[in-house]
Design a protein around this nucleic acid. Structure first.
Length: 573
RNA sequence: GCGCGCGUAGCUCAACUGGAUAGAGCGUUGGCCUCCGGAGCCAAAGGUUGUGGGUUCAACUCCCGCCGCGCGCACCA
């Protein structure tokens, strides 16, 4: 159990001792949101007092008289309307930290009941460039996967790429009639994108082109060898792009079962839904209706179009069935943008109708739109979006210039490596920092900022710690485990460590890595305050030893936390 | 029209899910010692949380009505 949790439970038990018949909410002791009031607080006595028709401050005083928490806390204080504020004793804090130094878990606890969780994220389309619109799903999903894994869960990541669908009709027409082989060799994605756009706009003025595309699509779906061959080549070229990008981002998937993987499962699925009376014919299409649900009353989900083709809902239901059978997950998490909320409501409702006995929890983790400078959403179709590879290049280039200014003596390969880690880190952090449900205004400067609340600030704090350890004259190895916390900066830093586990729990529960960003930024801030006010190497004996331990713990938590955001650290920058 | 979501400092965003004096970054202004890395630190200015009611010890947070914005509403994914 994490030290924080342990203390929390101790204090709760102590309050419970005094109020044996109160309900569990009334004895709750929680970490205090603002350290200036204390480290833990009880704020439920006010409502308890009301229920018992007592004066809340009087009740608090009565509780206080009998309350004994002297082993862990200083004198408990009553404040405001009837808050109890607990302040941790330094000895208790020392003890909590020492247990970590001696090899205990890093202020968090792993799940007592590990879950199997499937995470569906990123999901780029074949034959299109990955652009900034993909980063939220990609970073969010990856970060959640990392956090869940650290907490002991079994995580399966599945990249549900768009490798099937009507766009291939147009792509096939383009490929057969207008392909520029040289351009394809040079930059396959751009050439395929060009082909798609060209045929798309030709189709706007000439219906014959659309008809042609439709026929090519029918041939592909019918298994025409030539079209299948072209289709496979397009996928292979796209996969190369995906691999490049994901490798730069340090992101790996356990599986990449694209939409096409489910092709031969679609017809049997619809047959089954019809047979079980879950879906029925409507206006020539096959649809699932949700009469009982006021929200989905007039919003049927189509699982077969009137022309006999299948669509998004069909594939998603087939995918769901496959995942249930293949991995028996406790939970499936879909990370997509907020515009798909209705779609996932339909899928989830259909799932409950179809497999009412299933215990699997489905979660749609959605995020806001990415907007341009004009405040309008990015257009994925008509272009003018920033390519992800260009964004990464720009980040590394800008960072390289700064590294070269600050640290000209380092050899170029080292500067390149630092620029890579810091540049990519800045992008990931900028993306993960805002609340995921807020819309997102894209700006180069914000994305690539290296000052303020950014990844480089955290990486810089880490690098400064490493620098201290490089300068340590005698490499005594482990600085020991004994702490003497004295200054306010030391104590504030030490107390903040305890919040790490709590933060990880909320990240996973709320699917919000930005909680971790906030925690890490505060950690780096508290470390910097400590660094400014408490000399480490110039201190003597036990003080120096104790401060070295704080440095080491800060470095470990920073590194671990950043790793959960998919961000690396460097020893020098 | 119906549904979902949003509205917080000049700008970009937080606020631990109902707690105490609403906090950061950017930008602006003014400081930082021969001292472990200045990608840093300290300080100042900046707010009727869109608006009007309600609920209660307590509301950015929950409920209702307006105003404004975004997204979604049957054969795209």
């Amino acid at each position: 159990m994490s030290p924080h949790k342990q203390i929390e439970l101790q204090l709760q038990a102590a309050v419970r001792e005094v109020l044996p018949e109160a309900d569990s909410a009334a004895v709750l002791v929680r970490p205090c949101p603002d350290p200036k009031f204390g480290d833990y607080q009880s704020n439920a006595l006010m409502s308890l007092a009301r229920a018992r028709k007592l004066n809340p401050r009087q009740l608090a005083e009565d509780v206080l008289k009998k309350l004994d928490v002297s082993t862990t806390c200083e004198k408990v204080e009553i404040a405001g309307a009837g808050f109890l504020n607990f302040r941790l004793k330094i000895s208790a804090l020392n003890q909590a930290l020492e247990s970590v130094v001696k090899g205990g878990p890093l202020f968090f606890e792993t799940a007592s009941r590990p879950k199997t969780v499937v995470i569906d994220f990123s999901s780029p389309n074949v034959a299109k460039p990955m652009h900034v619109g993909h980063i939220r799903s990609t970073f969010l999903g990856d970060s959640l996967a990392r956090a869940l894994r650290l907490l002991g869960h079994r995580v399966i990541t599945d990249n549900h790429i768009g490798d099937w669908g009507t766009q291939f009709g147009k792509l096939l027409v383009g490929w057969k009639k207008y392909l520029d082989a040289g351009a394809l060799r040079k930059d396959p994605i751009s050439e395929m994108e060009r082909l798609y756009r060209f045929v798309n706009s030709a189709g706007e003025s000439d219906p014959a082109v659309l008809e042609e595309a439709r026929l090519e699509l029918v041939k592909l779906q019918g298994g025409d060898p030539e079209n299948l061959g072209i289709w496979r080549e397009m996928i292979a070229l796209s996969e190369k792009q995906f691999d490049d990008i994901y490798s730069r981002l340090g992101i790996k998937f356990d599986f990449t079962y694209g939409e096409s993987f489910y092709n031969d499962r679609l017809k049997p699925l619809v047959d089954e839904l019809l047979e079980k009376d879950i879906a029925r014919e409507s206006e020539g299409a096959i649809a699932i209706f949700f009469e009982g649900d006021p929200q989905l009353k007039d919003k049927p989900a189509l699982v077969r179009k009137s022309d006999g083709g299948f669509n998004y809902s069909t594939t998603d239901l087939a995918t769901l069935a496959f995942r249930l059978a293949e991995w028996r997950p406790d939970e499936i998490i879909y990370v997509t943008d907020g515009r798909q909320q209705l779609h996932f409501q339909q899928i989830f409702s259909a799932f409950r109708k179809w497999l009412p006995a299933s215990k699997t929890r489905l979660a749609h983790v959605w995020f806001g739109a990415i907007l341009g400078d004009d405040g309008k959403p990015f257009k994925t179709r008509s272009g003018d979006t920033v390519k992800l590879s260009d964004l990464l290049d720009e980040a590394e280039e800008r960072t390289f210039k700064i590294v070269s200014e600050k640290n000209p003596s380092l050899p170029e390969p080292a500067r390149r490596e630092i620029a890579r880690v810091v540049g990519i880190g800045a992008i990931k952090y900028a993306d993960l920092l805002p609340n995921r449900q807020s819309d997102y205004v894209f700006s180069w400067d914000k994305m690539l900022a290296l000052n303020g609340n950014t990844a480089p600030y955290l990486q810089y704090a880490y690098a400064r710690i490493r620098s201290i350890f490089r300068k340590l004259d005698q490499p005594t190895g482990h600085p020991g485990s004994s702490l003497t916390l004295a200054t306010p900066e030391e104590i504030a830093l030490a107390k903040h460590f305890l919040n790490f586990g709590l933060t990880l729990d909320s990240v996973v529960e709320e699917y919000r890595p930005n909680f971790l960003c906030i925690f890490l930024y505060e950690l780096a801030g508290k470390f910097t305050a400590f660094y400014e006010n408490c000399p480490v190497l110039k201190a003597d004996g036990q003080t120096r030893n104790s401060r070295l331990i704080l440095c080491e713990l800060t470095a470990r938590v920073l590194k671990q936390g950043l790793e959960l955001l998919g961000i690396e650290v460097v020893d020098q920058m």
